[in-house]
Protein backbone atom coordinates (compact mmCIF):
# COMPACT_ATOMS: atom_id res chain seq x y z
CA UNK A 1 0.00 0.00 0.00
CA UNK A 2 2.75 2.42 1.06
CA UNK A 3 4.75 1.41 -2.04
CA UNK A 4 1.75 2.16 -4.28
CA UNK A 5 1.39 5.64 -2.81
CA UNK A 6 5.10 6.29 -3.32
CA UNK A 7 4.89 5.15 -6.94
CA UNK A 8 1.95 7.45 -7.60
CA UNK A 9 3.81 10.26 -5.87
CA UNK A 10 6.85 9.65 -8.07
CA UNK A 11 4.60 9.84 -11.11
CA UNK A 12 3.16 13.16 -9.98
CA UNK A 13 6.62 14.46 -9.11
CA UNK A 14 7.93 13.55 -12.58
CA UNK A 15 4.94 15.21 -14.22
CA UNK A 16 5.42 18.41 -12.23
CA UNK A 17 9.17 18.48 -12.92
CA UNK A 18 8.46 18.03 -16.64
CA UNK A 19 5.90 20.80 -16.63
CA UNK A 20 8.11 23.53 -15.23
CA UNK A 21 8.55 26.32 -17.73
CA UNK A 22 8.63 29.15 -15.22
CA UNK A 23 11.96 30.88 -15.59
CA UNK A 24 13.05 34.43 -14.76
CA UNK A 25 14.61 36.68 -17.41
CA UNK A 26 18.17 36.00 -18.59
CA UNK A 27 19.56 39.16 -16.98
CA UNK A 28 17.77 38.58 -13.66
CA UNK A 29 21.00 38.25 -11.63
CA UNK A 30 22.68 41.21 -13.37
CA UNK A 31 19.73 43.49 -12.59
CA UNK A 32 19.88 42.61 -8.90
CA UNK A 33 23.65 43.00 -8.68
CA UNK A 34 23.46 46.38 -10.46
CA UNK A 35 20.91 47.58 -7.90
CA UNK A 36 23.12 46.34 -5.07
CA UNK A 37 26.22 48.03 -6.54
CA UNK A 38 24.28 51.28 -7.07
CA UNK A 39 23.11 51.14 -3.45
CA UNK A 40 26.68 50.69 -2.19
CA UNK A 41 27.99 53.59 -4.32
CA UNK A 42 25.28 55.97 -3.12
CA UNK A 43 25.92 54.89 0.45
CA UNK A 44 29.68 55.53 0.20
CA UNK A 45 29.18 59.02 -1.29
CA UNK A 46 26.62 59.87 1.39
CA UNK A 47 28.96 58.59 4.08
CA UNK A 48 31.82 60.56 2.60
CA UNK A 49 29.79 63.77 2.47
CA UNK A 50 28.63 63.35 6.04
CA UNK A 51 32.10 62.67 7.42
CA UNK A 52 33.72 65.31 5.22
CA UNK A 53 31.24 67.99 6.34
CA UNK A 54 31.59 67.02 9.96
CA UNK A 55 35.42 67.20 9.92
CA UNK A 56 35.51 70.28 7.74
CA UNK A 57 33.25 72.34 9.97
CA UNK A 58 35.07 71.23 13.08
CA UNK A 59 38.42 72.19 11.59
CA UNK A 60 37.17 75.57 10.38
CA UNK A 61 35.60 76.46 13.73
CA UNK A 62 38.76 75.55 15.63
CA UNK A 63 40.98 77.44 13.15
CA UNK A 64 38.80 80.54 13.24
CA UNK A 65 38.66 80.64 17.03
CA UNK A 66 42.42 80.07 17.24
CA UNK A 67 43.18 82.77 14.67
CA UNK A 68 41.05 85.42 16.32
CA UNK A 69 42.30 84.52 19.75
CA UNK A 70 45.84 84.91 18.46
CA UNK A 71 45.11 88.25 16.80
CA UNK A 72 43.32 89.69 19.78
CA UNK A 73 45.40 88.33 22.62
CA UNK A 74 48.95 88.46 21.32
CA UNK A 75 51.24 91.32 22.24
CA UNK A 76 52.39 92.78 18.94
CA UNK A 77 54.53 95.61 20.42
CA UNK A 78 57.83 93.85 19.72
CA UNK A 79 57.28 94.36 15.98
CA UNK A 80 57.61 98.13 16.42
CA UNK A 81 54.43 98.63 14.54
CA UNK A 82 51.98 101.28 15.42
CA UNK A 83 49.62 98.49 16.14
CA UNK A 84 48.74 98.27 19.71
CA UNK A 85 46.91 95.48 21.28
CA UNK A 86 43.71 95.45 19.29
CA UNK A 87 40.43 95.77 20.97
CA UNK A 88 36.84 95.81 19.81
CA UNK A 89 36.68 99.64 19.59
CA UNK A 90 39.62 99.65 17.19
CA UNK A 91 37.91 97.13 14.95
CA UNK A 92 34.83 99.33 14.99
CA UNK A 93 36.85 102.20 13.62
CA UNK A 94 38.45 100.03 10.90
CA UNK A 95 35.22 98.86 9.39
CA UNK A 96 32.74 101.73 9.44
CA UNK A 97 32.39 101.49 5.65
CA UNK A 98 31.40 97.86 5.86
CA UNK A 99 28.90 98.81 8.53
CA UNK A 100 27.45 101.47 6.26
CA UNK A 101 27.32 99.06 3.35
CA UNK A 102 25.35 96.48 5.31
CA UNK A 103 23.05 99.15 6.67
CA UNK A 104 22.32 100.54 3.21
CA UNK A 105 21.69 97.10 1.70
CA UNK A 106 19.36 96.19 4.47
CA UNK A 107 17.33 99.36 4.25
CA UNK A 108 14.56 98.01 6.38
CA UNK A 109 16.99 97.28 9.12
CA UNK A 110 18.80 100.60 8.83
CA UNK A 111 18.23 101.41 12.46
CA UNK A 112 19.96 98.25 13.46
CA UNK A 113 23.63 98.68 14.24
CA UNK A 114 26.05 95.86 13.68
CA UNK A 115 28.70 95.30 16.21
CA UNK A 116 32.14 94.36 14.97
CA UNK A 117 31.72 90.82 16.33
CA UNK A 118 28.48 90.36 14.37
CA UNK A 119 30.21 91.42 11.17
CA UNK A 120 33.13 89.10 11.79
CA UNK A 121 30.81 86.16 12.43
CA UNK A 122 28.70 86.97 9.38
CA UNK A 123 31.77 87.32 7.19
CA UNK A 124 33.18 84.03 8.46
CA UNK A 125 29.93 82.20 7.74
CA UNK A 126 29.71 83.56 4.19
CA UNK A 127 33.33 82.67 3.59
CA UNK A 128 32.79 79.12 4.90
CA UNK A 129 29.74 78.59 2.69
CA UNK A 130 31.74 79.59 -0.38
CA UNK A 131 34.70 77.42 0.58
CA UNK A 132 32.34 74.50 1.22
CA UNK A 133 30.74 74.82 -2.22
CA UNK A 134 34.12 75.17 -3.87
CA UNK A 135 35.48 71.99 -2.28
CA UNK A 136 32.29 70.00 -3.01
CA UNK A 137 32.48 70.86 -6.70
CA UNK A 138 35.81 69.03 -7.00
CA UNK A 139 35.12 66.11 -4.76
CA UNK A 140 31.55 64.83 -5.03
CA UNK A 141 31.94 62.89 -8.28
CA UNK A 142 34.85 60.87 -7.02
CA UNK A 143 34.55 57.59 -5.23
CA UNK A 144 35.80 57.68 -1.70
CA UNK A 145 36.51 54.69 0.40
CA UNK A 146 37.14 55.23 4.08
Amino acid sequence: MEKDINNRDDCLKNLIKKSTNEKPSIDFTEKIMQKIEAGIETESIENYEKSYQKWWWLLVVISTVTLFSFLLMFDWSFLNFQIEKPNLDQINTIIPDIQKFFQSVMGLLSNLKFSSISIIILGTIIMLVFIDKFIKRYSVDKKYVF
Binding site: F28, T29, I32, M33, I36, E37, I40
Partner: peptide, 9 residues
Protein backbone atom coordinates in the same frame (compact mmCIF):
# COMPACT_ATOMS: atom_id res chain seq x y z
CA UNK B 1 29.22 41.60 -2.44
CA UNK B 2 29.83 39.58 -5.60
CA UNK B 3 29.24 36.34 -3.64
CA UNK B 4 25.58 37.30 -3.47
CA UNK B 5 25.34 36.72 -7.24
CA UNK B 6 25.93 32.99 -6.60
CA UNK B 7 23.03 32.93 -4.15
CA UNK B 8 20.83 34.71 -6.70
CA UNK B 9 21.80 32.31 -9.49
Amino acid sequence: TSAFAYLVN
